[in-house]
Nucleic acid binder design. Structure first.
Lengths: 348, 348
DNA sequence: TTTATATTTGCAATCGGTTGCGTAAAAGTA
DNA sequence: TACTTTTACGCAACCGATTGCAAATATAAA
């Protein structure tokens, strides 16, 4: 068994009769090394099969060109797209991405934050677990000057970068769209208890839109799901369709919920959008595949990922520690599709 | 600006008047350290806010408790579930997961393989990029005794662990199911050029099933998509429905393709499954949401992820280098749903 | 030729744990 | 009490790259 020892800069140094420091500098195009030497070094490095040891470099410099991502799960379209955005941006700058899933558990989130720190990541991007109430496990990053970006599900009182959409405005827009379509009894399907403010904000937008248009709020039309799943959506939708009369519009705080509403409606003999108009949230792939297509609010996952990564990278490059931890708002748009097109407008 | 220096084992050693070696050993419950000392050390470590430095440990031991995952993309349901399975298994053993996306580009795959090696990952799990023909960039892992597992899209001639499903058998089962439903003109939608053998294997199963049941193969009924996307699926489906007569069954080598077939059929006035029965592949979430529900073949993503991770972990634990690089086959099942239920059997 | 300047390279400490080997202290045995 | 065994801990080298500072060499200016 050939115990193939790694080629190190020492090996290269020996072969070329140079100091390791010269090799190191040559490899990073340091200006104090002559072009000739650089070329020679790089060539022999290549020839000898040298692969830099990230650990050693990281240990010395106490930084790793690694971005840690701590999110609830990666199997949701929004989050996997988010990661994709992060990964692409990071990759471009030579950074590596470490991913950890909290599975919406506070305890796991705490552990993984520690693990990320232990790995000396250069920066952290996180979306909070549903369960999380206390966020002090993120303090360690701040106090050690590791840039921290919260994205999408962000804590309220934590002075660090945040990348979000304006959930309030989005909720307002969605509801207003239904109102514009002539709906007057608009239901809202939303997530139950939560600490992060995104569902609450959307609901706030919903309420405000009703208010602005003189539509009385009917608490019976607001249903809180225990989880954002298809099954829970069906349960909630059935509650809605048990009402008499049924609502004529539904704003679901997630496409998967909207899908369940549409399908439950169909199953129970109601027509979408004629009997009930539906709008979802996220613009998940499924929303444009399901029949009827589902109107929705865009949730620019990749862009949010890119924005988050860019903030990290920018902060890493410039030493000046921005004390201004700005909040980045990304745009959302209403996408009108069949499920809410009561007025029968032409769709693109 | 408080330059919060990290607490190291040196700090603990000094505080307790012990040697760093004792601290190090105490922290890992080494048997040569007394219970009292261990307890004392752990307590003060906790109190002082000590966080181990993974880099330092990894550098010394040349291993990092990190599993590198190199896949085409994470935004496909199958692959994100795969990662999820890997991550959960790894996490349980205290391993961290680094993820890199090749975006189906050979060049990126080569670079990222190098990056993974550079990070001294303990093991690698990879699914090949579509473009990849040559796999020599994976040699470095083998020659350095880093366990390597290929999963799903695996190379043919590379002696390492492989975790796959029996695509041939799955293709056969899917086709046979359609035959059992009474289909006699069965089309097949598959991916175009590819090096990994999964689509080819499925096609082989399809052909063999036809053969075994004395159904002549009609090349017009086999359509090669340029990409596994909804749009390409629609294009291909339309070709199918331009035929006269149209086929009475379709085996699509992916659920997203099956969805497009079902919807294109509906759009063109054909009934599913009465006029044409459809079966997909993967059991993606969408398959059981779309109306009609789509019959499919399970593709146990999470299990495959777990299996891959377990192989890595097992190989890491036992020093003996298994020279037998076994291939792990995971089971697939036919899930019969509405889209292929011509005989109108009761479905669960 | 000499001095000043620019260019190139080397020395050696450093990052923070890990571990083989050696020794001191405690416990056990004759 | 003397001797062996066990238990507990310390010393110091090591992993591989980085970097401040010093030194050597080359080039330019006087």
């Amino acid at each position: 068994m050939e115990e193939n020892k790694d080629v190190t800069i020492y090996d290269i140094a020996e072969k070329l009769n140079l100091a390791t420091s010269t090799i190191s500098r040559a490899l990073q195009d340091h200006h104090t090394i002559s072009k000739k030497t650089i070329k020679k070094v790089k060539e022999t490095a290549e020839k000898m099969g040298y692969v830099p040891n990230t650990l050693a470099a990281g240990l010395r410099g106490n930084k790793t060109k690694t971005i840690g991502v701590l999110i609830p799960t990666i199997t949701q379209p929004f989050l996997s797209s988010l990661i994709s955005g992060i990964e692409i941006a990071a990759q471009k700058s030579g950074y590596t991405v470490i991913i950890m899933q909290s599975h919406d558990s506070y305890k796991e989130e705490v552990n993984m934050a520690k693990a990320l720190y232990s790995n000396r990541v250069s920066g952290v991007i996180s979306s909070l677990a549903m369960e999380t109430r206390d966020t002090s496990h993120f303090d360690q990053f701040i106090s050690n000057n590791i840039p921290l970006v919260f994205v999408d599900r962000v804590p309220k009182n934590f002075n660090t970068f945040r990348v979000i959409i304006d959930n309030y405005a989005a909720g307002y827009k969605a509801t207003k769209h239904l109102i514009d379509q002539g709906c007057t009894r608009i239901a809202h399907l939303t997530a139950g208890s939560e600490f992060g403010n995104l569902y609450n904000e959307r609901k706030r937008g919903y309420l405000e839109a009703l208010n602005d248009h003189n539509i009385p709020v009917d608490e019976d039309l607001i249903i809180y799901l225990n989880a954002v799943t298809y099954e829970e959506g069906v349960k909630a939708s059935n509650k809605l369709f048990d009402l008499n009369p049924i609502p004529d519009g539904v704003f679901a705080s997630g496409d998967i919920i909207a899908v369940s509403a549409v399908q439950t409606a169909k199953k129970r003999g109601f027509k979408v959008p004629e009997d009930i108009a539906v709008i979802g949230f996220n613009n998940d792939p499924i929303s444009q595949i399901i029949d009827p297509n589902i109107s929705t609010i865009t949730h620019p996952a990749e862009k949010m990922g890119k924005a988050s990564a860019d903030i990290i990278l920018k902060n890493l490059k410039s030493d000046k520690k921005d004390d201004v931890k700005e909040i980045t708002f990304l745009n959302t748009e209403v996408i009108i599709r069949e499920s809410s097109n009561k007025l029968n407008n032409k769709l693109p």
